[in-house]
């Protein structure tokens, strides 16, 4: 019974905010992919300056990263026309969680109790944001 109520409320929520969810998912997905590509390019830099940033941006991974970051701005733009920035900007923190999970799952990175507690706290923060309102 409770599962039916929960499923119905999730379905209603997705129906009401379907476009916003799709736009946010696209923006954050493209941003994460762009970030990972650009990180790969940055690791090849021998010096850490504006000049080396320019050189890195001309490499294959750099161009791919920049392209994906620029692409992520399109759904972000459409999202900001309909929803509050003060709600969706803090949700960028979800990108950090996803990058850490990718690092742990695929690259064998660290996952300690601190990381898990941090992920839990971020979700508590996000649920508080939801209660704080997000419509225009």
């Amino acid at each position: 019974m409770q599962f039916t109520v929960l499923a119905a409320s999730i379905k209603r929520g997705v129906g009401e905010h379907g476009t916003a969810i799709r736009l946010f998912s696209s923006a954050i997905g493209l941003l994460i992919a762009g970030q990972l590509c650009y990180r790969k390019a940055l690791l090849t830099a021998t010096q850490h300056s504006l000049n080396s940033l320019w050189q890195v941006s001309q490499s294959l991974w750099g161009i791919l990263g920049i392209g994906l970051i620029l692409l992520s701005l399109i759904p972000w733009l459409a999202l900001l026309a309909r929803r509050q920035l003060s709600f969706f900007y803090p949700l960028w923190s979800i990108a950090t969680i996803i990058v850490v999970l990718i690092n742990w799952w695929w690259f064998g990175g660290g996952m300690s109790w601190q990381t898990l507690a941090g992920i839990g706290l971020v979700f508590v923060g996000v649920s508080l944001l939801f209660r704080g309102g997000h419509s225009i």
């Binding site: 509050q84 920035l85 003060s86 709600f87 803090p90 923190s93 950090t96 969680i97 990058v99 850490v100 690092n103 742990w104 990175g109 660290g110 996952m111 300690s112 109790w113 601190q114 990381t115 898990l116 507690a117 941090g118 992920i119 839990g120 706290l121 971020v122 979700f123 508590v124 923060g125 996000v126 649920s127 508080l128 944001l129 209660r131 704080g132 309102g133």
Partner: peptide
């Protein structure tokens, strides 16, 4: 500047997210 709603839940939510992110970064060393 834009006239969005300012609520206590939003403020606390963002502060909790900051603490959470710092814990993630310290814990994973990413």
């Amino acid at each position: 500047f834009v006239g969005e709603t300012l609520t206590l839940e939003k403020m606390f939510g963002a502060i909790i997210i900051v603490v959470g992110i710092l814990l993630i970064i310290r814990g994973s060393g990413f």
